[in-house]
Write a protein that binds this DNA or RNA. Structure first.
Ligand code: FES
Ligand code: FES
Lengths: 150, 150
DNA sequence: CCAATTCCTACCGGGCTGATAGAGATTATG
DNA sequence: CATAATCTCTATCAGCCCGGTAGGAATTGG
């Protein structure tokens, strides 16, 4: 389960991708129905991660730091929810041996964790903001079925 | 991130699959280094889900309810951590429209959620306890690469 | 100067996580 | 039958995280 915060972040990013221009927090919050003060923190987090930039003062606001085609879902999720992996031992952005598994190398469940992480990040790094906003919703499922067997 | 509890559950189930015989909680806890009283609750949960059965009294213990080949990682994870999907709107075991997304059908992030869920459950329902315990750890990664492109 | 905006930090209630505790039910064995 | 080993049930707990609120400080256009 990804956090509410992450969904808010995605929605905000997608809003910016659609608008293709700077927008104030108030505007984003109103359009996507996100608590305004909460969104502030989220935008700050995305800014810290380098995904968006901002300008202050009247006429200020937030805008994407790079083209919507270059910003992936994976990037947004990582900067809000942290690593995508299901366990620390399966993350390569924040690897850490699982406490309470005797040995990482002999662990019987880690292969599964690695497999899940691999497929997940493959998918998530393949979806950009641009792809998500301008898309007949069938595309994703087709793409997925391409490799399907078993 | 899956919970510690879920990892404990998997480890316990794998222990039973290896042993292929009934085992007491104390024995499982000792071998897999799981807090004993905590494991009690976990086993009860797995029993409630129909994955394991039990017998009381001395010589009692837990044993798998069916052949290790028929018990999937997905089943174990579901009975401990709940749905595998990243959001309620993407779960088909526990579907529920996401609060705070205006419309489920027009949601721009749901297609991604569905794609992730599909690949994840495909993987997780394909791995049985039997497969996990008797496996040259390379197999999984090979299987994955079979469909890979882009 | 003024107003609109971002930036920063603190706070808070409620629920979940990872346990621990202890008493009760069941059953093999002497 | 008594005993001991096991599962079963329910309650409790501390600590953390999640979702959200609050208030002010800094910046900047008009
Ligand atoms: S080492 Fe991470 S789950 Fe076993
Ligand atoms: S509806 Fe579930 S994320 Fe938008």
């Amino acid at each position: 389960m990804l956090s509410q915060k992450a969904r808010y972040a995605l929605n905000a990013a997608l809003y910016l991708a659609r608008k293709n221009d700077s927008a104030s927090i108030t505007a984003i919050a109103a359009d996507r129905e996100i608590p305004r003060k909460f969104l502030e923190q989220i935008m700050l987090q995305m800014k810290a991660a380098g995904l968006v930039r901002s300008r202050r003062g009247p006429t200020g606001g937030y805008y994407l730091a790079s083209a919507p085609e270059t910003i992936t879902f994976a990037a947004v999720l990582r900067c809000i929810d942290g690593p995508l992996a299901l366990a620390p031992c399966a993350s390569f952005t924040a690897y850490e041996p699982c406490s309470s598994c005797k040995s990482v190398t002999s662990c019987e469940i880690r292969p599964m964790l690695l497999a899940v992480r691999d497929t997940t990040v493959l998918l998530l790094e393949g979806i950009s903001l641009a792809a998500a906003v301008a898309e007949p919703p069938s595309m994703l499922s087709e793409e997925k079925r391409a490799g399907g067997s078993a």
